[in-house]
Design a protein around this nucleic acid. Structure first.
Lengths: 152, 152
DNA sequence: CTTGAAAAGAACTGCCT
DNA sequence: AGGCAGTTCTTTTCAAG
């Protein structure tokens, strides 16, 4: 865990909203010179606080109008079966996120599909055939809002 | 829905993995000139296929070691109560994602906290006091893997 | 930390195939 | 559609205060 000052936090707050901005643009808004801002961003990257920059895609415009969250309970939960499940599930292209969780279900999967019948195909041929799958619960995504989250 | 050719898809596939790369770097790998690649990326942005670039933060290194998914069932589900709930929940800084879903629960929230006792504070003072909240289910995140997802 | 300057690269434009 | 050449802007690095 790295300690950041207020300026680092201000930079992160700006960058989280729009990672397109460079050091120059952010520095101007915060009253900091371009090189100083650049060095701080560089430091945050080297420290691993900034893990990378991700492209946000509009899946609907790509023809994937359906997003479903699946809660998956494993029938057998040894170390091997967790690894087997994870290896198999990450090989399914329609699976966008694999979350190992603690609670009623063991895994939470974010699955995208072209439409409901395409989703049924993925569910029956890909998900239900995964090694060790027990109960499965599905939630269809209606709307989603992402927020910056806390920096400090 | 926009129709893309194989070159557009190849560009997106590269960009989704690492949005840091510019048009020049991607074009070189695909045997396309910098202006041609740039024009394609520009087109994808204008078409809305590319919604933006998001900074990926390591929440643990920022001191937020606990991520919890909450399934929230509303007690009353009129149009007004959905809007009231959404307005109130998006004002909580610890809430990173608000997903309106169809299924056993009405909403899924991604909540980050410093530790479990900090999470309890957020749950008791922020979440449970939200307007219209009924049942709440919690899942603690253990590990997470994000995949590029399908482009075509 | 700052400024200034130089080098490299990326973004953007116009023209031509 | 793609490539080439050129301009402008930003990024990145350096030196120096």
């Amino acid at each position: 865990m790295i300690d950041l000052d207020d300026m680092d936090r201000a930079i992160l707050r700006r960058l989280v909203v729009d990672a397109t901005q460079g050091a120059g643009a952010i520095g101007r808004k915060l009253g900091l010179s371009q090189p100083a801002t650049w060095r701080r961003i560089r430091r945050l990257q080297d420290a691993g606080v900034i893990k990378g920059r991700q492209l946000l895609l509009d899946r609907e415009k790509l023809g994937f109008g359906v997003t479903v969250f699946l809660g998956v309970k494993l029938a057998t939960k040894g170390r091997v079966s967790l690894e087997d499940f994870e290896r198999a599930v990450t090989a399914i292209p329609e699976v966008q996120t694999v979350e190992h969780i603690l609670g009623l279900y063991d895994y939470r999967l974010r699955v995208v599909a072209r439409d409901i019948s395409d989703f049924e195909r993925v569910l029956r041929r890909r998900i239900m055939t995964l090694p060790g799958v027990g109960d499965v619960e599905a939630n269809v995504l209606l709307t989603e809002e992402r927020r910056p989250g806390p920096i400090a």
